[in-house]
Write a protein that binds this DNA or RNA. Structure first.
Lengths: 150, 150
DNA sequence: GCTGACAATCAGGGCTGCTGACGATCCGCT
DNA sequence: AGCGGATCGTCAGCAGCCCTGATTGTCAGC
């Protein structure tokens, strides 16, 4: 952990700011979720799976913006933790439908609360209205279609 | 490249937002800087080195918040590209002072302009006042001292 | 001088995510 | 019927990024 000194050259850079904000959040998230035996990525998977059933692995990966091969490993760990179950779909036996186990549902509920509290602490240095605007600004940026050319 | 579909479960998560905003920016940055033969990390190194001379490798790494061993590799590539030079410090021969070559200074100047234009395009979906607030909010978060306990 | 601390380097490993290939399965077409 | 192309999950392998730990050279206090 090197020092946090920073001159204007850096704090005016969007890249530096986003990277370090992300790193800080990841650290806080990992810490906050440690009691539940999962990390932020795994929690996001659980949350997506809970919204709609049944989801195939590919569909879940698509919603999270991750690769299908990455989802395989992610589900492997979640399955060995007993939080999700894979079942071959009867309609299309190429697909695995993935669902939360009761343990997984319980874990999700409690971990989501911990995550929300962690995010509040994370945004605490900001006035509440600024925190809202930050969220909205990021949503706008992330949901804006990519400009292929530039 | 999986789809960009996203439900509220995700877009309300700070982790998801920061991660994907960062990924998008990195992609845009890499593209914008490609003509100069460098990427965003390398440009940040050049920018830091330009602010104060002489800086040792360790000092430069500290300002960027990266590890000293990472800096070694980063400087290796910048040196082979002819953008920086390492010189053993005369006062303390353990240290390498790193400075930009004329080529490096020229590269920095032009690449910085490209980066600023890229950032403007990146923030274009936001009203200008929101873009400013986004920057300030991120600065606040990144410069807030870490809370060791929580 | 000796000892402990520090700077740069290197080897190695962890984590994350990808590409490419494979087997199983589905679907459209003939 | 059955063939061909596409799709899903899986795996092996690789690349990028960053760290830990050990090594070498150097400094600074005693």
């Amino acid at each position: 952990m090197t020092g946090e000194s920073s001159s204007e050259v850096l704090t005016s850079r969007l890249g530096y700011l986003l990277k370090h904000a992300y790193l800080r959040l990841t650290e806080a998230s990992t810490q906050a979720l440690a009691p539940f035996g999962i990390d932020g990525r795994e929690l996001a998977v659980l949350a997506v799976l809970a919204t709609q059933y049944p989801l195939s692995q590919l569909e879940a990966a698509g919603r999270l913006g991750i690769d299908r091969t990455t989802m395989v490993a992610l589900l492997d760990t979640l399955e060995t933790k007993g939080l999700v179950e894979r079942h071959r779909s009867a309609q299309d036996r190429r697909r695995n439908t993935v669902q939360l186990t009761p343990t997984g549902q319980d874990c999700l509920r409690r971990a989501e609360q911990a995550r929300e509290e962690m995010e509040q602490r994370f945004l605490a240095p900001l006035p509440p209205s600024d925190a809202d605007r930050l969220i909205h600004a990021l949503q706008t940026i992330v949901t804006t279609p990519k400009n292929p050319g530039l």
